[in-house]
Amino acid sequence: MVIRPVTRLFALRPAALLVCAAVMVSTMSGCRRDDSLKIGYLGTLSGRHSDLGVAGRDGTIFAVEEINRAGGINGKRLKLVVRDDEGKAESAQTAVRELIAAGVTAIVGPMTSSMAVVTVPIVNNSRVIMVSPTVSTGELSGRDDNFLRIYPTNAQKIRQLAEYARKSLGLSRLAVVYDLSNRSYTDDWRQAFTRQFESLGGTVAPAVSFDASGQTDYLSVARTLLAKKPQGVLILAGGVDSAMFCQQIRKLDTAMALFATEWSSTPELLVHGGSAVEGIVYCQNFIRDDDSTPYVTFCRSFDARFGQIPDFGAVYAYQAVRVIGKAFASARTAGDLKGAILGIGTFPGLQGEFTIDRFGDADRKPFLMTVRQGAFRRVEVP
């Protein structure tokens, strides 16, 4: 009789069917075509300059989620891959290679000029484009390559800040301190600002450098700066370092005029600087107190999602994703994103339209900002 074996066979059949079903689902999933559009994000998410990188990441996430809630792009969802460049050249290069290997078509980022300079050659050897929200160094201007940006170069801001210090405030001698860890940005600012200020009849003392990737004796640097007998100090550094320099300079001279750049204009400057950063002046393109409907709506939604008002890094990263999204919608192929962006040329921003020229460089009008009563305020120049 063979009843017993047959009985055992039928007893095992439900389990066997489950296994077969699982294998079939797994096989079908593996064969299912992934119709998502993959983009990457590259920013400094750890270390002293992480405030800008984290803001950019959150702005990117917000934009991706918004686009996907609206049905994606031509029915396809965006998929985001995030990488931390750690503010280090080697880490940034590794991260870009990983993003390319992961199959991204576009990279949002990086957020600092030094990371852009070391990674652009890598994307130029691929079909991937890089759209930076905040990189402004002139070193990458006027090039027909795979690097594009929605933030303008430093030139206009440098000219406006130099004219304000020399003509409006009547200062004739300035000192400069700059961070070597983001040299592509700070050196560009230092050299161009010196030329501009001196062309107006002023004098800029030999600059003092420091490296934010190591230990910094802020008080010692402040003493060196003030030993040059300046009427004002230009600080070319991130938010935390700028705040620390302001603290030490104010201990030595409470009346010293202080200047900075948009790189430092993050909440970290206010948190770490306190009253020492009151009156600091810098030039940028982001209007914090803008009351336009697109910007106000974005701020409310961002606050509901992340529990905080967006910083300029988040605002510009969001717009970078929207630029990529618009290009995806109009490009004939995913490999034609650059051509689509350059072909569109003018884009709706949260604070007005902006343009991207044939070299991928953006144009926006800058203005002066200051810190007054613990908040960022616009400077009204007669």
Rank of each mutant, 00 (worst) to 15 (best):
A276L: 02
S168G: 03
P348F: 09
T119G: 08
S114P: 00
V296L: 13
D289C: 00
N182D: 14
R250K: 14
G274K: 08
L174M: 15
G109T: 03
L161P: 01
V208A: 13
R322A: 08
S168L: 08
D187K: 14
S126R: 13
A375T: 13
G349Y: 02
R364T: 00
A63K: 11
M111F: 07
I122Q: 09
P310V: 06
A22M: 10
L78G: 06
A106H: 02
S136F: 05
I150F: 06
V379G: 02
F259Y: 09
R358I: 05
Y178K: 13
L37F: 06
K228P: 02
D357L: 08
R322Q: 15
A165E: 01
S126C: 11
P230W: 07
D144G: 03
F193R: 05
R358E: 11
E86I: 04
N68L: 07
Y41H: 15
F197K: 04
S91M: 13
R372N: 09
C299M: 11
A21Q: 00
R378Y: 01
F302S: 04
S301T: 12
A63G: 10
S213Q: 10
Q351G: 03
L342N: 07
L17G: 06
I67Y: 10
S220R: 15
V120W: 06
S213M: 08
I100T: 12
R69S: 13
I309K: 12
V321L: 12
I158S: 01
T266Y: 03
R57I: 00
V323S: 12
C283E: 04
V64Y: 09
G214I: 02
K88F: 10
S330F: 13
T261N: 04
N146W: 02
S46T: 15
Q248E: 14
F147R: 07
A205D: 06
V123R: 12
E262F: 01
T134R: 07
R166D: 02
A260V: 02
D289G: 03
V54L: 13
T266E: 05
T186P: 08
Y318T: 04
G30P: 04
F147D: 00
K38V: 07
R83S: 13
T112N: 13
T266I: 00
